[in-house]
């Protein structure tokens, strides 16, 4: 809203600033609380003494009790492999939809869009059966496979390719580029912002994904961070609260740090992703 004038307006303005800050403090406090608990001994979990000694002991114990480094590696392999596959598959499909008037294009595109609504985690039962028949249960490939052809990625890239001027393609053709050459030399470089937005959204989504990885994995060697954390933090596991906080922070740290460093790009990407 525009800044109001006058003394009354100034008062209202100050009130709004305080409200904004108060809400911000309330909103971030659960996370600050987790930080407090993770870096202090169990005795200080609800005893907020600013002179309480800091400790890394909770992190050490969390790492001793569960292989979080391995989980982290699994998550890293998963999101990298998945993003690479998504970029290749979605680029090819989006190029087809954007630049080739092939038979059945409209119907095929409508069928692709179905996946925006019916995401793979809703079909866990059947997809588990499919992966069992493929012998891919409890593999990192198995976690990623249902998400590799992403309707959302195809949709975003198709938009980007459609807005590329056709003259550039014709110029590249005159230079002797083939169908894939044009894609690689003209369309892909010009869609770089879309690739960045899609990449950030895909990595954050799959870093945080839980239900499908839980269903399809059952060993330490394949479990991603979220599933490892879910098993670790379950109430029946009886683990100390401060240690759970430390484990939670370990699991979210890479993404959280990336977000704090590249806030603007993250918010921009989430917005592009949402609005489509």
């Amino acid at each position: 809203m525009t800044a109001p004038a006058g003394a009354g307006g100034r008062f209202a303005g100050a009130l709004e600033v305080s409200a904004a800050w108060l809400l911000a403090v309330v909103w971030i406090s659960p996370l600050l609380y987790a930080l407090w608990a993770a870096f202090h001994g169990g005795a200080y979990a609800t005893h907020f003494d600013p002179t309480a000694p800091l400790t890394l002991d909770n992190f050490r114990q969390a790492l001793d009790q569960a292989p979080f480094l391995r989980y982290g590696l699994n998550t890293f392999i998963l999101v990298t492999m998945l993003l690479a596959a998504q970029l290749v598959l979605c680029t090819l499909a989006a190029y087809a939809f954007a630049r080739f008037r092939f038979w059945g294009r409209e119907a095929a595109f409508a069928l692709v869009l179905v996946q925006l609504m019916v995401t793979p985690e809703i079909l866990i039962v059947e997809n588990y059966g499919t992966l069992a028949r493929l012998g891919l249960v409890d593999t990192i490939t198995g976690i990623g496979l249902p998400y590799m052809a992403s309707a959302f990625g195809i949709f975003l890239l198709r938009q980007a390719f459609k807005s590329t001027p056709k003259e550039l393609e014709e110029a590249a053709r005159l230079e002797g580029c083939g169908v894939l050459g044009v894609l690689w030399r003209v369309y892909v470089p010009l869609a770089r912002p879309t690739y960045l937005a899609y990449g950030l959204v895909s990595v954050s989504h799959h870093w945080n994904n839980f239900l499908w990885p839980l269903v399809i994995t059952n060993s330490l060697e394949t479990r991603p961070l979220t599933v490892g954390l879910g098993v670790f933090g379950a109430p029946e596991s009886g683990v100390d609260w401060s240690i759970i906080s430390a484990a939670t922070l370990l699991s979210v740290a890479p993404l959280l740090v990336a977000f704090l460093l590249f806030q603007r790009q993250f918010m921009q990407s989430f917005m592009t992703a949402g609005i489509k």
């Binding site: 911000a24 996370l31 609380y33 954050s204 945080n208 979220t226 954390l229 933090g233 939670t248 979210v252």
Partner: peptide, 23 residues
């Protein structure tokens, strides 16, 4: 900073959020 405070919960996995709120 204020905007960041509002947005941060969005990028946490639901599992981590549940762990924090459980306590």
């Amino acid at each position: 900073l204020v905007r960041m405070a509002y947005f941060t919960p969005t990028i946490l996995p639901m599992i981590a959020v549940a762990n924090i709120w459980l306590f």
